[in-house]
Design a protein around this nucleic acid. Sequence first.
DNA 1: GTTAGTGTATTAGCACGCTAATACACTATG
DNA 2: CATAGTGTATTAGCGTGCTAATACACTAAC
Lengths: 98, 98
Amino acid sequence: MTDKTQISPRADLAKALTSVKSAEEMERFLVDLCTPAELRALAERWHVAKMLDAGDQSYREINALTGVSTTTIGRVARFLKDEPHQGYRTVLDRLQGN
Amino acid sequence: MTDKTQISPRADLAKALTSVKSAEEMERFLVDLCTPAELRALAERWHVAKMLDAGDQSYREINALTGVSTTTIGRVARFLKDEPHQGYRTVLDRLQGN
DNA sequence: GTTAGTGTATTAGCACGCTAATACACTATG
DNA sequence: CATAGTGTATTAGCGTGCTAATACACTAAC
């Protein structure tokens, strides 16, 4: 019996990311893992998720403030509200002290 | 004086990711934050970083085993070895108990 | 010497995710 | 009623990152 169980590449990445102990270290890991454009896109999506969650602004207002298109805003909204994983939701709740 | 200091979108994302407490939750967050293709690409890069770090295989062998092109392998190698942030390095060291 | 293997660079072409612009159906407002 | 605003959908076009294929310079092995 091997003691190394096979996990998916995705789960393995999640494990690595979870091992990171500080925001500074996380940023350094992200800078190595992602291209500049990718990292910018991911950061923007997170920013949009937070704005949507705050609920103060319409898609067009968020677009005007951030430059992110309503298409992208709509996609983030869908994952925030409708998709089953609720990954955004969990993190938002924790960061807001819910 | 406002008590909300402005941080970069990138650092803010890093903070959110660092708040995640389990690999399962991290995977759920990633599934929401990234498109399927993006998540696959990131996971592959991490996998390649680990293989490069193990040092047992050449770029062409890694390519043959993973399907990742030598161009991408080269880029991961550069960030692992030469780029200043050393984000990959830090996480690899921690996961290997170094 | 030749050959094989290596890391690295380049190219063409594809898939992908973005944006701006536009449009639609619906709701709210006056 | 008309208008404004909303979320949502669609399109065209662009930038981006990938792959496969090819090539180069170098090293190692024989």
